[in-house]
Amino acid sequence: MWPPQCPAALGAVARGIYTRRSTPADAGDGAAQVAEYFQDYITVAVFAAFGAVLVAVAVGAASLLRPSNPTATKSQTYECGIDPVGGGWSQTHVRYYIFALLFLVFDVEAVFIFPWAVQLETLGVFALVEMMVFVVILLAGLVYAIRKGVLEWES
């Protein structure tokens, strides 16, 4: 039974994997399209979740094999072998927050710019000029920040 059927089974595997489930043309009614839309994102969610599950399973499996013998010294915070001084959550420089603010402006731009890039050919010169104005305004912000000394690390 099994060996003669093997090529056929492999063929079916290949067909199933190599055939995209459906194209927009044959997605008939609205309900099917909605289902299709959610299937796309279920796939994404399942793959992302698998990353987390993989870690959980691996760590769980290791817990059966590894020794577990925590002591007070062992679970001390590592600081080059001497007793830790002060807390671990120490103060950090404010410049990291300023970088984040600077980034936020441009990141919003990135969200706008992708749909624009896809439709650029149909929208034409008007859209091009429009986006140039937008980008120049943002660049002015960047120049201001640099002139203000955000990137200077000497204090």
Binding site: V44, F47, A48, A49, F50, G51, A52, L54, V55, A56, V59, A61, A62, S63, L65, R66, P67, S68, N69, P70, A72, K74, S75, Q76, T77, Y78, G87, G88
Partner: peptide, 29 residues
């Protein structure tokens, strides 16, 4: 696989355990 899993006493245990999951998750996504 055979090495002891040490979580520092001062650490935020939940976030400490979730961090590698988030890291691997991103690339699977």
């Amino acid at each position: 696989l055979q090495k002891e899993d040490i979580i520092p006493a001062a650490a935020d245990r939940v976030v400490f355990k979730a961090a590698p999951m988030v890291s691997l998750m991103a690339y699977f996504a």
